[in-house]
Design a protein around this nucleic acid. Structure first.
Lengths: 116, 116
DNA sequence: TCGCTATATCGCTCTATAGCGATATAATGT
DNA sequence: ACATTATATCGCTATAGAGCGATATAGCGA
């Protein structure tokens, strides 16, 4: 299962990848993405669901927008955001799986006799 | 292609996911992972390959180790690190693909007539 | 035991950004 | 035009962490 070919990555590309991960490294932004998995929502709804201040929600939404992860649609006075980059779903599933494996392994350690 | 079921995520779980992304959000750490894709290496080799100071390399390696992404094997006075969590490969491929798509889309914009 | 080398850790400065309250902008109805 | 509501942006403070030089620790050979 280790049949991965190593991509050739310039340091510029590496920076872009790092940047993408950074965008996803804020709990608040993940909460917004999580909310938006149900479908498009406007800022007020997101403020209500996350319980965070409107200024914060708005700024995090622009970060996600600038990263190309979200898209938006203005309608009258309100702005509706939606997930534009579906790869986010797979990404989160991968990370969740990996975290799950890690936790399971740590639980195993607890069962096993101490080793030092 | 949107057949993803939304995982139920506690805010604690969300924090763990964010944490995992945060670990991957440093270019230097990605460079270390990239180097280690060739196989196990010791700290000196990684210092040489990345051109960064030993203190930095060492600290970033411990971050990756604590996150469960790397494993290590001590041998005499030197320490060999290797990738322990293979999901990193898929993760990077996903992100690279997503970035590639985005860049391609932006290039398209440039060809298309300006719209404002 | 005494250096010598490899690695880890410490203390520091500097930068980035989260969250906050206040304010600005924009669309709508009166 | 004005008030109202929705959203975006600004200025601020506080905190986290990257990179750096210096130092500490650990294994090894003389």
């Amino acid at each position: 299962m280790t049949g991965y070919t190593k991509r050739r990555l310039s340091s510029a590309a590496m920076g872009m990848v790092a940047e993408r991960f950074k965008v996803l490294s804020e709990p608040m932004r993940l909460r917004l993405l999580y909310s938006l998995m149900d479908g498009e929502k406007n800022v007020s709804e997101l403020v209500a669901e996350t319980g965070s201040a409107q200024a914060n929600v708005s700024r995090h939404l622009s970060v996600l927008l600038d990263a190309g992860i979200l898209g938006r649609r203005k309608e009258g006075t309100s702005t509706h955001y939606h997930i534009a980059d579906e790869s986010i779903f797979e990404l989160c599933n991968l990370v969740c799986g990996s975290i799950y494996d890690r936790l399971a392994a740590e639980l195993d350690e607890l069962d096993a006799p101490p080793r030092h």
